[in-house]
């Protein structure tokens, strides 16, 4: 007998004392297809404008910096400003996301842009988020050639662009959007929730920023 059969067999024998296998299978199918929401904290149930404010407040509480711009056309300058203000090199890597690739980069000061995943040599990475979660100031990013996951973790500085309309109150709203986009029961290879820059409390329980991931996380919210 394989270990699979032995393990499942043991569980099966015990559970059969209380219920039939077919009833259990039905219960499972029902929950997976209905995916009930549970309790959504009151703080997340807000109108769009209040959600955006809560997102920014919560993100700043965990050392994310935020800049708001009126349109996508303002993104290149916002990034160039950030790099200059923080004495960072005038260049970065990013994926093939058209919302980023098609921006008027030439209008900002000369920025050297590398397209593709990060190999660990890039000081700065730029990504476009799938959405944001106001409840905890969390960004949600999905993997793929548009926004390779290595960019979220290898560069010391991570700049994330997010549309204001993609910011929802709670995690559950974004799961619904992902189900619509990728099909039920399916997800992209990696979904990252990111809430602030990397940190560790492993030396004497003192929190220090910049453990293995980015030391800084800068979010540009586009009013779109």
């Amino acid at each position: 007998m394989t270990s699979r059969d032995a393990i499942l067999g043991r569980i099966n024998t015990t559970l059969n004392r209380a219920s039939e296998k077919s009833a259990r299978q039905q219960a499972v199918k029902a929950r997976l297809s209905k995916h009930p929401k549970g309790t959504i904290p009151a703080r997340a149930r807000l109108d769009k404008k209040a959600q955006l404010k809560l997102f920014c407040d919560q993100a700043e509480k965990v050392q994310t910096s935020i800049r708001r711009v009126k349109s996508y056309n303002g993104v290149p300058k916002a990034i160039a400003d950030y790099l200059r203000d923080h004495n960072l090199p005038a260049g970065f890597c990013m994926g093939e996301d058209e919302r980023l690739q098609n921006l008027p980069w030439e209008k900002a000061r000369a920025l050297e842009i590398k397209t593709g995943p990060s190999d660990g040599e890039d000081a700065v990475g730029v990504s476009h988020a799938f959405g944001g979660i106001a409840e905890t100031g969390t960004l949600l990013l999905v993997s793929g050639k548009d926004n390779p996951t290595t960019i979220n973790f290898l560069p010391e500085t991570h700049v994330v662009v997010v549309r204001s309309r993609d910011i929802d109150g709670d995690y559950e709203s974004l799961w619904s959007r992902l189900r619509k986009e990728y099909g039920t029961g399916k997800l992209p290879r990696t979904v990252n929730w990111i809430t602030g820059p990397s940190r560790s409390g492993d030396i004497q329980q003192t929190i220090l920023l910049g453990a293995h991931g980015p030391r800084s996380l800068h979010v540009i919210v586009v009013d779109a």
């Binding site: 965990v62 994926g95 593709g116 995943p117 905890t136 969390t138 993997s143 793929g144 050639k145 390779p148 996951t149 290595t150 399916k186 997800l187 992209p188 290879r189 990696t190 979904v191 990252n192 929730w193 990111i194 809430t195 602030g196 820059p197 990397s198 940190r199 991931g213």
Partner: peptide
């Protein structure tokens, strides 16, 4: 919430660059 909550499903997909 912790800084990183990561959901991984299967190996890299067709078209993925990492």
């Amino acid at each position: 919430i912790s800084v990183y909550t990561t959901f991984s499903t299967g190996p890299k997909r067709q078209g993925d660059v990492d």
